[in-house]
Amino acid sequence: MSIQQSEVLYTAVATAENGRDGRVATDDGTLDFVVTPPKAMGGSGAGTNPEQLFAAGYSACFQQALVVVSRQEKADISGSTVTAEVGLGKNDDGFGLIVKLSASIPNVDAATARALIEKAHQVCPYSKATRGNITVDLAV
């Protein structure tokens, strides 16, 4: 279910110049990065790249979804972390992404941790946006 424009609470605005070998910045100036292809793709690796930016956003959003779910479930997730690995590779349409989300939740057992990340995956806006479009693997 999509949201309507009147329901938007916040809109982030970023502008890129020269694609993967240029610059990306937000309209408020809080982010301003040189963007370069990673060494693994023949670039200098001297700047960040879109996959790193996506991984940062996805991991932060998923961690917040985990916080929301843990409150509902009354689970202690203090000290938890979420790591997003975003892979870029060739597919039938040119290029595509694959994601692995790894959660470390030290204060709960493995079954509870798994249940929490499954529930977080259902409410995380990034997970909703990517569902059915890319492979997202969940790990604890």
Rank of each mutant, 00 (worst) to 15 (best):
I3L: 14
G29F: 04
Q4L: 14
L66C: 09
P38Q: 13
R71T: 12
K100E: 14
T15A: 02
V8R: 03
G57C: 12
V99G: 01
S78L: 03
Q72K: 10
V35W: 01
M41G: 03
P37K: 11
P125T: 08
A46D: 15
L9H: 11
V123N: 07
G79Q: 11
A12L: 11
G19Q: 12
H121A: 09
V13F: 10
A55F: 05
A46M: 09
M1L: 13
A103P: 00
K119L: 09
D27I: 06
A111H: 00
V136G: 03
M41S: 09
R20F: 03
S102C: 06
G79C: 12
I98D: 14
K74R: 12
G89V: 09
V67Q: 10
E85W: 01
S44G: 09
Q122W: 04
P106D: 06
Q4I: 06
A110V: 12
D21K: 01
P50S: 10
A75L: 08
V82C: 07
T83W: 02
G79E: 11
G42D: 10
T36H: 02
Y58Q: 02
V35I: 14
V123L: 15
A103S: 00
N133G: 12
F33A: 02
I98N: 13
L101D: 02
D92P: 03
S59H: 03
V86C: 06
F54E: 03
R131V: 07
G45A: 13
L88Y: 02
T15I: 06
L138R: 10
A55L: 07
V99T: 14
T15K: 05
M41L: 15
V99D: 02
P125E: 08
Y10C: 10
K119Y: 08
E17H: 12
V69R: 01
D32A: 08
N49P: 07
A65E: 02
Y126W: 08
T81I: 06
E73R: 15
S59A: 13
E118T: 03
L31Q: 14
V140I: 15
T26N: 05
V123S: 15
M1T: 13
E7G: 05
S6N: 10
L138E: 11
L53G: 04
D28N: 12
P37R: 13
S70K: 01
S78E: 09
E51R: 02
V86N: 00
Q72I: 06
A110K: 13
A84V: 11
D92S: 09
G22K: 04
T112M: 15
G45K: 05
G94R: 09
G87H: 14
I134M: 05
V35H: 01
A113V: 05
I134S: 03
M1Y: 10
D109K: 00
S2W: 04
